[in-house]
Structure formats: C-alpha cells, structure tokens
C-alpha cells in the first residue's frame, strides 16, 4: 500500500484519538496509509508572528527535518492547528535561505534542512490526490439525510498563503461530505473563530464565540457539526455543557469530519462516537420511513 508521511500532533494522541483512528481507517480504505513520523515533537500550535523570533519556529522545522530524513517532500497533518503552524513555518523557512541557515546552525545536531518539504492538510490530500469520485465509491453506507455544518474555523482558511481553499467561501469539506452522501448546510459562521486558546484565561470569551458558532449551525438546520480541529471541538463542546439549557444547543453532534467519512466507509460503530451512531441510525430510519411507506 502507498504511504504518506503523517504528523499526528499531541491532541490526536490524547484528547482526539477518534480523529486519528477514523482518519487512519479512511486512508487505509482508500489505499494510502498514513505513515506516522517515528520521532516528532509538538508543532508549536500557533505561529510566531514577529520578524525576529525564529526560536518559536524550531519545533516545526524539526518535524520537517524528520520528513526530509525519510527522503520525502510532503507531510500531511489532520489537526488544523498543526497543519497551519507547520505549513506557515515551511512556507517561511523554505522561501528564506538566510533564516533557514540561521536555524540550521542552531539545530547543529540535526540534518541540515534544505527547504524542500511541503505541508498538506488531509482534506487537500483527499481532494487532490484521491479525488471525490474515488471517495464516493468507497462509501457503501450513505449518510443521506444527514445535515452537516462544515466548520472550518480559522486555521484551515487563514492566512491566504496557508488556506486550503477559498478563505471566505470554502467548499472543500462540503465536497467531502457530499461524496459520502451527506448534505452540507451552509452557515455564516463556518469560518468564524471559536475563541481558541482564550479558553485558558478568558473562558467566558471562548464560550461566547463557540455558542454563536453552534447557534449559527443550528439555525441553518444542521444536526451535526464537522470540524478538523481538536481545540474547536473542545471549545464547542464546552459551550454545549455551559449553555446546555439553550434550546437545541446540546442536541447537535460535534464530530471530526473523518468520523463522518469513516462511518460512511463502514468503520466499526464501536470505534465511533456514540452520538454519531445514534444520529446516523435515526437519519437512516427517517429516510426509509419517508421512502418506504
């Protein structure tokens, strides 16, 4: 089976294990195995934005070196924060030989980074390498009737250089959902911020932002929100817990987009979120009830 170097990130080994296992299942089914880097470190989670602060790019560059050591030039990430941080660092350091040289001198025990590794998000790999046709053919279980709000958040769309699709009107996740037979419902907060790391010292702020995202999805008629970010998922679920009394807020499922794809590909339901299984079953029953009576 073909393989592609894969960077998991901390969350996928801890709070978001379902994201990883579902993605692995999806990619195995499609014949392109995610090959986890043998040695990797935290991506840094956020990009350092000052001109002179190269130190905070080290973590990302070390991961790129691991890919280079495999004689590969492509690295795929699932977590959108990892994707963004790795991709932005790769773009900056690949394009700037002076900064690259400085970093190489500092990391004197590593192989010298040549600036040749590019970082992709799994959605890009699905679109550009696998193709929606192939994906559709690999989904025997249809998710017809499921109304998915594809929530991109910030890091898949911004900045433009790291965006995996149009920054204001992305369709890449909806296309993946469509391939699995689900209906993607457009909602205005698809690219809005969930409050991100503010949850650490300004929880009020992240709860409020996440609440608005969920409400926007609810009003658009969604019954499940698909995300690619463990922090978005955490914040949205915190808002659900905190504001569960708000009509409908706690009912909407918040899952990783790969979990929906894996369900459509027949992954063992026991390895998928319980709420998602129930939702899929109810939707299927409603569908047959509609068509069969």
């Amino acid at each position: 089976m073909n393989t592609i170097p894969y960077f998991p990130g901390c969350s996928l080994k801890d709070t978001a294990t379902g994201f990883e296992s579902s993605a692995q299942f999806v990619m195995e089914t499609l014949g392109l195995r995610l090959q986890e880097l043998e040695r990797w470190n935290c991506c840094g989670t956020v990009t350092s934005l000052t001109t002179d602060d190269l130190m905070h790019h080290l973590a990302s560059v070390r991961n790129l070196v691991r890919v280079q050591d495999l004689h590969e030039s492509e690295l795929v990430a699932l977590c959108s924060m990892c994707y963004n941080t790795l991709a932005r660092t790769a773009q900056r350091i690949n394009a700037d030989p002076v900064e690259r040289d400085k970093i190489n001198q500092f990391m004197d025990r590593e192989s010298s980074y040549e600036g040749t590794v590019e970082v992709r998000h799994l959605l890009q790999v699905l679109r550009d390498r696998i193709g929606w046709e192939t994906l559709a053919q690999a989904t025997p279980i249809t998710l017809e009737g499921l109304k998915v709000a594809c929530y991109y958040g910030c890091t898949l769309l911004r900045p433009k250089e790291a965006a995996i699709d149009n920054t204001e009107k992305p369709t890449i996740m909806s296309e993946a959902m469509a391939a699995a037979g689900a209906t993607s419902v457009p909602f205005p907060f698809a690219g809005e911020c969930c409050g991100t790391y503010q949850v650490v010292d300004r929880r009020d702020l992240s709860i409020e932002r996440s609440f608005r995202v969920i409400q926007s999805a609810l009003r658009a008629g969604a019954n499940v929100i698909a995300t690619a970010c463990p922090l978005c998922q955490h914040n949205l679920q915190e808002a659900q817990k905190e504001l569960g009394h708000v009509q409908g807020l706690a009912d909407i499922e918040i899952v990783y987009f790969t979990e929906l794809l894996a369900a459509a590909m027949g992954m063992d339901p026991q390895r998928l979120p319980e709420g998602l299984n129930v939702l899929i079953q109810q939707t299927a029953e409603a569908q047959t009830g509609w068509g069969g009576s």
Partner: peptide, 12 residues
Amino acid sequence: LPQIALVASFRK
C-alpha cells in the same frame, strides 16, 4: 484543558 490550548496560550 487540552494541551493544545495550554501550549497555544503559553506561547501567546
């Protein structure tokens, strides 16, 4: 808190 939030917050 998930570590993704802590790392990001401490970095910022």
